[in-house]
Design a protein around this nucleic acid. Structure first.
Lengths: 301, 301
DNA sequence: CGCAATATTATGCGTATTCGTCATATGTTT
DNA sequence: AAACATATGACGAATACGCATAATATTGCG
């Protein structure tokens, strides 16, 4: 599959004939015919019915033309960005830190209260995002430091220091029948509405696998991308979720309980920064402040 | 530009070397080297600095790798759809909605409680992100609907229905001296620590301009990207922030007050969806549930 | 109505370009 | 010195595409 083929699909859906498409794209008619054939072969899908010397789009073509349009839009966007970068578009020291969304409410401010006093001339920029995004932002040197979950490949451009750990727990509304159990496994969750995060990521795949092995079909009501929203949904009775105790501890004030999820799984959390880049004093101190606040947040009640 | 080049860029950003990339992609190292060169030539941008026999990504590479990732995701989606069409597979209907991060705690769950009951077979996927990201995700048809702030260019691929509005307010700790004022202007904020969001976006630039015209230097202590974190910083005494009353109303439970910020400015918020695409019944109902919850959230106490 | 003109798609054939590998040169790090 | 890294010359295979043409369908005109 290539971009030219997608352009043909898009234009053909619009013009209705290979000749008009060829003219619009500055190709020959036979070139268009071939590109269409190649795309159909690549996808193993008939996109146009050949009827009386005419091309009639199939329903499949309509669906996939949307996807093709999405790809071409993304390509245009990238070209536009490259153009911007070619044509080219400083201040107080800014220290940038990435944290999971779950940490904005109390964790981040508590971390910053003393820090701001100690570093009055430093401007802080906070990003609340997913582990994947933070990983990337650190790697790309957008962030000086980032707190993230250590899983899968970290990449050579990042150094991570482990600063916390957790275990998988099932977060349950306080008044739910499952709250009476000492621990939860997949079979306890048969027919229970689930709120799950991290689709297609290693830990989620392991979780999906444990359900499969227990022969339990997941009833996923909500897919979301932050631990915080998952906990909030649980607190509102929308279902139960399975996340790391590290995050669950940040939400102790909600009317939920958490129970170890079987099979046991542990998670490691680390502080990431770009490899080979020494932190400034301000950034290092923010890093230290983060570590202190983490210890506070994970203390037993 | 072709898809293989983009895969190289993506993998190279991840692995850091042409050899590892070649291995991961099943190519030769020289093939990778060439594809990278071709991409650089096609874009007329240096993506990697060649330093001591190593490839060091430029800031430009970081930006464009994101674009490349979007393209490749769209390609994967198309391939997945083709696969589904070939095998005739279908799954539960998934409705995807994008909301600002500020809405995860109480707004989103409240919105979903009744909805989940009414649509038991629908799976919901929630994304909490910035207006910019939501705009993009709707445009790319990743999201069915997205709640966003209407500002600047919306784009030809999106239809937006206005569903809420707000005015600029200054959010102040309840025990702060500024809380006694009926309204706040830039000159009231001389030497006051500021927590600001939305750097380089139109509304932020207007705010920066009002400070400049008042001859007041901004003492920005914290830059952040979500209204929620800004309000939380304010509640912890880290400074004051200027945001839309729409968001401030979501944080009434914090020990803060808000006062109109002079010069008056209003913001519009809308519900976005891809142009020309009719919503499914499930998506339309979720859209209606969102509107209802918005009205509830903006009621006067 | 019949026929010529026009429109449409697909395919044979040939040429130019692109893609990718092998082999190798050069430089850096362990 | 060995291992690791990137770039490039040379070459062959594969791909992209145009010209010319065949086959079929539709339209316009006498």
């Amino acid at each position: 599959m290539n971009i030219r083929q997608l352009e043909v699909l898009r234009t053909l859906m619009s013009t209705g004939s290979t000749i008009a498409t060829a003219k619009a794209m500055g190709l020959s008619q036979s070139g268009v015919s071939r590109l269409l054939q190649q795309l159909e072969a690549d996808l193993s899908i008939t996109l146009f019915v050949r009827d009386k010397g005419r091309l009639i789009p199939t329903p499949e073509a309509a669906i996939l033309a949307r996807d093709a349009e999405n790809i071409l839009l993304a390509v245009d966007r990238m070209s536009g960005h490259a153009q911007d970068l070619r044509s080219g578009a400083a201040g107080p020291e800014i220290v940038r830190i990435g944290l999971p969304s779950s940490m904005w409410e109390n964790f981040a401010p508590a971390m910053l209260v003393d820090y701001v006093r100690d570093f009055p001339s430093v401007r802080i920029e906070t990003f609340f995002d997913t582990t994947i995004a933070i990983n990337k932002l650190v790697e790309e040197r957008v962030l000086d430091i980032g707190f993230l979950r250590m899983e899968g490949e970290i990449g050579p451009g990042i150094e991570v220091e482990q600063v916390a750990s957790g275990e998988s727990v099932c977060v349950i509304p306080r008044d739910h029948r499952l709250a009476e159990l000492a621990e939860i496994s997949a079979k306890d969750l048969r027919d229970v509405p689930l709120i799950l995060i991290g689709r297609q990521r290693p830990n989620r795949m392991a979780l999906d696998q444990s359900f499969k092995q227990a022969g339990v079909k997941q009833i996923v009501k909500i897919e979301t991308h932050t631990n915080s929203s998952a906990c909030s949904y649980v607190a509102h009775g929308l279902g139960v979720t399975i996340i790391s105790s590290f995050y669950a501890n940040l939400y102790r004030h909600l009317p939920v309980v958490h129970r170890p999820f079987i099979p046991h799984a542990r998670q490691q959390f680390g502080l990431a920064r770009a490899a080979g880049v020494p932190l400034s004093i301000a950034a290092q101190s923010l890093s230290d402040a983060l570590k202190r606040q983490i210890q506070l947040s994970q203390k037993d009640i």
